[in-house]
Amino acid sequence: MGNTYVIVAETRGGRLRQVSLEAVQAAVLASRDEDKLIALLLGHQLQEAATELARYVKDQVMVIDHPDLAMYQAEAYLAALAPALDQLQPHTVFFGHTAIGRDLAPQAAAHLNAGQISDVIAIAQTDDTVSYTRPLFAGKAFENRKFTASPQIITIRPNNITPAQPTPAPAEISELTYSPSPSLRTVIKEVVSKSIGRIDLTEAKVVVSGGRGVKSKAGFQPLEELAELLQGAVGASRGACDAGYCDYSLQIGQTGKVVTPEIYIACGISGAIQHLAGMSQSRIIIAINKDPEAPIFKVADYGIVGDLFEVVPLLTEEFRKVLSITS
């Protein structure tokens, strides 16, 4: 008899996140044919997302739908997840390495007394070993790890594992109940959503990033226009964040976020080692900088030496022309 592999899926703005389909694929890669794949979906008003998820999961989708789970809250989510895990006795549990997964996975690991391998970018199965590749120092080095015991917990870095393909027949969907405990010690008071309708930096296919060369908060405007046109996200270097041009949540680097988009456009970023660690695994890197000696050009596939305030709007226009022909 096989083991049970559980994927903890999540939604953003009511829609299933792509990283959750990547986590499903991670479970496919780590398991064998005889194993059972079950996805758990926590939140509120999940019908659409559950139907979508069921197309990709081999065996079962279990939904825990409750108004109190509409927003992620550490204690409530663990209270909802723990009984499901106790019941399923999983061999391995997969999460996205997202704001939710990063917080919920270690809680689940402690609950199950399990090991966890975080921020996995590749999975390989040979004979009787499954090895997980993950970055160290934000990508200055990589390690392969394996588990020495089960249960096992994994978080998957967005944009690195190909999303799962639909299965021949959709999985069965069932509901699990959640009764909120009156003894929760955490209360959500307010949420200021700055990200409505925007794709998260770590999941974006295109990242347009600004450094000190952007010179001011307003200087990010042309970058935002380019990102919006390409349905991407805006990022920043530490220099730009420290100078107060943008929010720290945009920072890319060894401190900050690690991104691996298809296209990374660095505007006015010199390329400090700690920044390069956060973006050098992107597929195509484009650098725009006044200084031809800037270290960023050493990792860039294409470089434009010039003033970003002249180049970026021109680039946006060129993209607009091409995209309008296609669509």
Binding site: K140, A141, E143, F147, P292, K298, V299, D301, G303
Partner: peptide
């Protein structure tokens, strides 16, 4: 509960084109 199997450095990016 976990152990390292191997360690590697990322492949150097080929120098690009200005």
């Amino acid at each position: 509960r976990t152990t390292r199997l191997s360690l590697s450095l990322p492949a150097a990016r080929k120098s690009g084109r200005i």
